[in-house]
């Protein structure tokens, strides 16, 4: 089980930048002065990319922790935190 957790860590590290890439490409393709939907306005994209960048970074860190075995044995008491 611990080996699978570590291998999956690589997937989490890879997914994170992919999410940001998809969002940036989504913004480039959809922001349009003539459009009327929310996806055509720049402000929602700026807010979403701003909030998702640290979340994606968090997913990368999560993947790194998984890869380095930090989740092999979850802590059970606060003195282990």
């Amino acid at each position: 089980m611990n080996t699978i957790k570590k291998i999956m860590g690589i997937a989490w590290i890879t997914i994170a930048p992919a999410i940001i890439y998809i969002l940036v490409m989504g913004a480039i393709h959809n922001i349009n002065d003539a459009g009327t939907k929310d996806i055509n306005k720049p402000i929602p994209w700026v807010i979403i990319i701003t909030i998702f960048t640290p979340i994606a970074l968090g997913l990368m860190i999560f993947g790194y922790y998984a890869l380095t075995g930090e989740y092999d044995k979850p802590p059970e008491r606060s003195d282990e935190l």
Binding site: W12, I55, G58, I61, F62, Y65, P75, L81
Partner: peptide, 8 residues
């Protein structure tokens, strides 16, 4: 790491 685990 527990905050990240709770979220994801």
């Amino acid at each position: 790491k527990m905050v990240l685990l709770a979220l994801f």
